[in-house]
């Protein structure tokens, strides 16, 4: 496993979601991409071909492990069995990033398969911080925390979402995974200014960006990872790059999965914008 990023390497870096249907093509064609990302939970197995493919692809590419079920915002204790499985996977794959979400999904031992919203209060901050610290200690590495798409807001919030994320960074030393599509979707659904959101986040804490498509068929936009990145999200991405500099960027695609080339083209677009807008020297 020789492929990894140096912290001094500021070149544009883009990745795409790795799906079963891409395995063979990736190993045969070795596409020009800097990394792949997988959902950790799909590889928490004792064996099987998916894990073998991932290990084979890891020989040629850095891998980012993206989780959806640590449930860091739950009031109940972290699931130790799940953490152990994640740690085993980390030891097998040696990922360059490990991430999960600003959300909750487990209560009373029941797992609700969605990224459920937490109110941004002091109480939630303590719960989230304690869990992030515990997970980071157990895994012996920092986690990246991703802002989720949101469909409801809490009138009694004591922090805005970027304020809450900033506090988590301060309290735990975690890093952020900024999903630009999620900012856009949430800003539409909850009526806030996405540019102001970016301005509220501190510099030097974002280690990955996600880009994806969303569904606009209803009154509320739905983050579905099932289509091209919309133009408004690309515009917000440019602003993100201007503010934060070049950051590894992933094209996420989880539904209606197209040919790998479609994702690679989107990734090339992101690479082009990183070069054009993401100059560290000119970052604010």
């Amino acid at each position: 496993m020789t492929h990894s990023f140096s912290s001094l390497d500021t070149s544009a870096k883009v990745g795409v979601s790795l799906k079963h249907c891409y395995y063979e093509e990736v190993l045969e064609d070795k596409p020009n991409i800097n990394f792949f990302e997988v959902h950790s939970e799909n590889y928490m197995s004792e064996g099987g071909s998916s894990l073998a493919w991932l290990e084979a692809i890891r020989e040629s590419y850095p891998i980012s492990l993206h989780g959806v079920s640590l449930s860091l915002g739950s009031t109940q204790d972290l699931n130790k069995v799940h953490l152990k499985k994640l740690k085993n996977l980390i030891q097998k794959i040696d990922p360059f990033l490990v991430s999960d979400h600003l959300s909750w999904s487990i209560i009373n031992g029941i797992y609700l398969n969605d990224l459920l919203p937490i109110p941004y209060t002091k109480e939630s901050l303590k719960v989230m911080s304690d869990h992030i610290r515990e997970a980071q200690d157990f895994l012996s590495r920092p986690l990246l925390i991703e802002n989720p798409s949101s469909y409801l807001y809490f009138p009694k919030n004591e922090f805005s979402e970027p304020q809450f994320l900033t506090e988590l960074v301060k309290k735990t030393g975690c890093k952020l995974l900024l999903d630009v599509n999620n900012i856009y979707v949430s800003s539409h659904n909850n009526q806030f200014d996405p540019n102001a959101y970016l301005e509220e986040l501190p510099l030097n804490c974002i280690e990955e960006i996600h880009l994806a498509g969303h569904n606009r068929d209803h009154k509320f936009y739905i983050d579905n990872h099932g289509c091209h990145v919309q133009e408004e999200v690309w515009e917000l991405y440019k602003k993100t790059l201007k503010r934060f500099g070049r950051i590894s960027t992933l094209i996420e695609w989880d539904d209606h999965i197209p040919e790998l080339n479609v994702l690679l083209e989107e990734a090339e677009k992101a690479r082009k914008y990183q070069i054009e807008y993401g100059n560290y020297e000119t970052a604010a």
């Binding site: 609700l112 398969n113 969605d114 459920l116 919203p117 109110p119 469909y151 409801l152 807001y153 809490f154 009138p155 009694k156 659904n189 009154k219 509320f220 739905i222």
Partner: peptide, 19 residues
């Protein structure tokens, strides 16, 4: 539990449907 929220049911149902 969380106070008055406009169009709350519609918003809540997005999560419920996702699950």
């Amino acid at each position: 539990a969380i106070g008055e929220v406009e169009e709350f049911n519609e918003r809540f149902n997005i999560y419920s449907n996702n699950v």
